[in-house]
Nucleic acid binder design. Structure first.
Length: 343
DNA sequence: CGTTTTTGACCTGCGC
DNA sequence: GCGCAGGTCAAAAACG
C-alpha cells in the first residue's frame, strides 16, 4: 500500500481533498484521512523548504515473491483501506511514524480531529521566529548555538514504509551513517544517515517497526541539491532518467547503497527491489511495457485498470519535470500520470 | 590510505 | 529543575 500525505502548513490549512493523510513527528494528532487516489495525485507537491510539508509514502512489497508481490500500484488502490502494516496508534505510543501509518480503520474516525490537531499545531501560538528556533536547534544544536536566532525552516520531510529484510534502502544516493540510537519502545535502533554530497544536507532516518520487524520505516528530510549520482551497481536501466532528475529527495532506488539491498526509485517511479535472490522493477508509467525481469508483467496485470485510474486522475501537475515542486512532486509526479514516459 | 561505520558523549526540547 | 528521549558529533575502528 502506498499512502502519500501532504500537509500544507504554509497556508495553515489543509486541503480536504488533498490531504490523504497527515503525518508529522512534530504534529500531534497526525492521522490518516479519507481520500481518493486522485486526490493523492492532485495533491500539491510537498513544498520545498518553507512549507514544512510532510509526505508519507507507505510502501509494501514482498521481498521474496516478486510474482505475488503487490506492486506499488497495486498498493495504491483506493479505499477501502487495505490491511495495515502497522498496528493501531494506540499500540505504537511514541513513534510518530507509526502513528501516522495508523490503521485505515481509524482513518475516518480520527481524520477530522487529527486534521484539526494538525492545524492547531500549525496555528500554534509560536511565532515565526519561535518556530524557526525550534527548527533550527534540531539541526544545529551543538555546533553553533550562536546562530540560534537564525531562522531555519524545517526541511521537507516524508517517510515511507517498506516491507523489506533490508534496513537501508538503496535509493540511488550515497549516504553516510552518522549515528544510531535506540528507540524507545522498540527493540530496533534507529539509524541516521546524511547524504555524502558536501553541499547536500539531506538526512534520513531508518528504523524498523517495533510492531512488525519486517517493516522498515525510512524518513527523508531535506532536499537533494544535486542529481542522483550514477552508480554502477543496481541502477541498471533506470539511470537515464535518473540523470535527468535533479531534484529532491525523491530518488529511491538505484545504486548508491550496498549490494543486496532494497531499492525504490521514486523520482521516475522506477522501483526496484533487490533482495537476495529477487530483483524486480516497477515502472508505474509503463505498466505494460515495462521491462525488466521476468515476472514483471504479473506485477501489474491484475490491477492494470485500477492503475490507469490511479494515474489518470486529475493528473494535474502538467509539467512536473519542468519545475521543482518538492518531494512529493518528485515522488509521484508525472510518472503517475498516464504519460507513459518510457525509460 | 581514504571512506564508512560504530559508539559513547553531548546537546536540546519536552513533560512532569 | 530534573530526567528522559531524540538527534548529532567526533574519535576510534573497520572496511575496501
Amino acid at each position: 500500500m502506498l499512502l502519500i500525505n501532504s500537509m500544507e502548513k504554509e497556508n495553515n490549512k489543509l486541503k480536504p481533498e488533498t490531504s490523504a493523510a497527515l503525518f508529522s513527528d512534530q504534529i500531534p494528532g497526525s492521522s490518516i484521512t479519507n481520500y481518493s487516489l486522485s486526490s493523492i495525485f492532485d495533491m500539491p507537491p510537498c513544498e520545498t523548504e518553507k512549507s514544512s510539508s510532510l509526505c508519507l509514502i507507505e510502501t509494501m512489497f514482498a521481498s521474496h515473491d516478486p510474482i505475488n508481490t503487490p506492486s506499488i500500484f497495486d498498493l495504491l488502490q483506493p479505499p477501502p483501506p487495505p490491511p495495515l502494516l502497522i498496528p493501531p496508534q494506540s499500540q505504537v505510543p511514541k513513534i510518530p511514524l507509526s502513528e501516522i501509518v495508523n490503521t485505515p480503520n481509524n482513518s475516518s474516525s480520527i481524520s477530522s480531529s487529527s486534521i484539526e490537531a494538525a492545524n492547531d499545531d500549525q496555528h500554534t501560538t509560536k511565532t515565526v521566529d519561535q518556530q524557526a528556533d525550534d527548527n533550527q536547534d534540531k539541526n544545529k544544536k551543538q555546533l553553533k548555538p550562536k546562530n540560534k536566532k537564525q531562522k531555519r525552516e524545517r526541511e521537507p520531510r516524508f517517510a515511507f514504509m517498506t516491507k523489506s529484510e533490508v534496513d537501508h534502502l538503496d535509493d540511488g544516493f550515497r549516504w553516510r551513517k552518522y549515528g544510531q540510537k535506540a528507540v524507545k519502545n522498540s527493540p530496533f535502533p534507529r539509524s541516521y544517515y546524511r547524504c555524502t554530497t558536501a553541499t547536500c544536507g539531506v538526512k534520513k532516518r531508518v528504523e524498523r517497526s517495533s510492531e512488525d520487524p519486517s517493516i522498515v520505516v525510512t524518513t527523508y528530510e531535506g532536499t537533494h541539491t544535486h542529481p542522483c549520482p550514477i552508480t554502477p551497481r543496481g541502477s541498471i536501466g533506470i539511470l537515464p532518467e535518473t540523470a535527468g532528475y535533479s531534484g529532491s529527495i525523491g530518488g529511491l532506488g538505484g545504486g548508491g547503497g550496498g549490494g543486496g539491498t532494497s531499492s525504490l526509485y521514486f523520482p521516475q517511479f522506477h522501483y526496484q527491489v533487490q533482495q537476495q535472490q529477487s530483483t524486480y522493477f516497477h515502472t508505474p508509467t509503463l505498466p505494460r511495457s515495462f521491462t525488466s525481469n521476468t515476472s514483471d508483467s504479473s506485477l501489474f496485470s491484475t490491477t492494470n485498470s485500477s492503475q490507469e485510474r490511479m494515474f489518470s486522475p486529475s493528473t494535474s501537475s502538467s509539467s512536473p519535470l519542468a519545475r521543482d515542486h518538492g518531494l512529493l512532486q518528485d515522488m509521484v509526479p508525472s510518472q503517475m500520470r498516464n504519460d507513459p514516459k518510457e525509460e
